[in-house]
């Protein structure tokens, strides 16, 4: 297990619990989306993975080592963290320097640095912005600079906090293919997000946080299936099913909502799945 979280509880200084007995494990190479509404504890959880926060009780282990026994510098070799707000991590005068900062601190050789930076800039679509000042870029582009600067550190675990914020159509496609590329390299990606549309398209496992607790943990397919059956086809609400099914305060993908609106109790999230379901439910389609 690259990540092992056991009974993690975290309370703010004033005693308000942000995380309450969170337990789950992630195997190397998995792509996991941690989803939940604002205030569910997603960012607090993510910050524990890089040691910015320390557990009030319970443990977080990365590559078998407890994060509260490691310095942030030591942890930085194992976990790369991309903040929600790019201004939290961009201080250099050019994009290239920002991306080179991490590998330099980790003691990469010049050759390793050059290779890591060239790759990170390419996969984030920033190669031709290498000499630009980060402040002259759009918010979405700055977010990708932050991502590139973390990818260049070549950590086995990459944690992304709300990666889709401010990303346009093309950047989202780029981010999707990047996640595929990271998976092929065997790197583990954990993204914290409230974007279910992005989650169902690019992740294999979904963990739902609700008020600091794990409310659901399973594959995306299982989530969709449980979600579809939680609401009977006639649209009437079954309270028992609603309680046992996945949480319902997240915005479902558009076509999942459309299928529900049409009273289909089928797991649908993509255009292809929607069309095949539509074909089955349409009486004798004329040839043309």
């Amino acid at each position: 297990m690259i990540l092992s979280i056991d009974s993690l509880t975290y309370a703010y200084a004033n005693g308000t619990p942000a995380l309450n007995g969170v337990t789950f494990q992630v195997a190397a190479g998995e792509r996991v989306a941690v989803v939940g509404s604002n205030g569910a504890g997603k960012s607090t959880l993510a910050r524990h993975l890089v040691g910015i926060e320390r557990p009030t009780s319970g443990t977080v282990e990365v590559e078998g080592r407890r994060t509260d026994e490691l310095s942030i510098a030591e942890l930085a070799r194992s976990v790369g963290f991309v903040f929600q707000n790019p201004h939290d991590q961009l201080h250099a005068r050019t994009v290239a320097k920002a991306v080179e900062f991490g590998p330099r601190n980790l003691g990469f050789t010049a050759e390793q640095r050059a290779r890591a930076c060239e790759w990170a800039l390419r996969v984030t679509g920033l190669t031709h912005h290498a000499q630009d000042h980060p402040h002259h870029l759009s918010f979405g582009q700055r977010k990708r600079v932050a991502l590139a600067s973390v990818l260049a550190m070549d950590t086995p675990l990459v944690v992304l906090d709300e990666p889709t914020t401010g990303q346009d159509h093309r950047s989202l496609a780029l981010l999707g293919s990047l996640l595929g590329e990271l998976a092929e390299e065997g790197r583990t990606v954990i993204a914290v997000t409230h974007d279910m549309e992005f989650c169902v398209q690019h992740f294999e496992r979904v963990i739902v946080l609700e008020r600091g607790r794990v409310r659901w943990d399973g594959t995306v397919e299982q989530w969709l299936a449980a979600d579809a059956t939680a609401l009977p086809a006639d649209g009437s609400r079954d309270d028992a099913a609603e309680r046992s099914g996945p949480p319902t305060d997240l915005e479902r993908p558009q076509l999942t909502r459309l299928a529900r609106e049409l009273g289909w109790s089928a797991p649908v999230a993509t255009v292809d799945a929607f069309l095949s379901e539509l074909r089955e439910r349409t009486p004798s389609v004329p040839a043309n």
């Binding site: 549309e197 076509l255 255009v271 004329p286």
Partner: peptide
């Protein structure tokens, strides 16, 4: 585009 729009455009190609 919205997924609703894409789904309808693709469905239209199949007379749906």
């Amino acid at each position: 585009p919205l997924q609703y729009t894409t789904a309808a455009r693709r469905a239209a190609e199949h007379g749906l």
